[in-house]
Amino acid sequence: MSNEDKYAQVFMDTFSVDREQLNDKFVYQCVPAWDSVGHMGLIAALEDTFGIMMETDDIIDFSGYEKGKQTLAKYGVEF
């Protein structure tokens, strides 16, 4: 599975959404499941999937599906 696929899968599992919904409009609080609780679950799942530990600023600035890819790039996750 490519990193892109793994990344998308985390969002699909965490928020129960389809891959088609995952684009630059998929941002924090755009679906009820992506609330603060969902955000915590998302970060935990991403850290597990990619074996990374994110910094506080990156966690609270992880505001959307596309934005998140740039963040993960800082931790060596290539897309």
């Binding site: 965490t14 129960s16 009820p32 499941a33 609330d35 609780v37 969902g38 679950g41």
Partner: peptide, 18 residues
Amino acid sequence: HTAIRAFVAERTGINPSA
């Protein structure tokens, strides 16, 4: 199961992960 989970989360307003 997916529908039940989504329904309960929607009704309660609590994150489905619960």
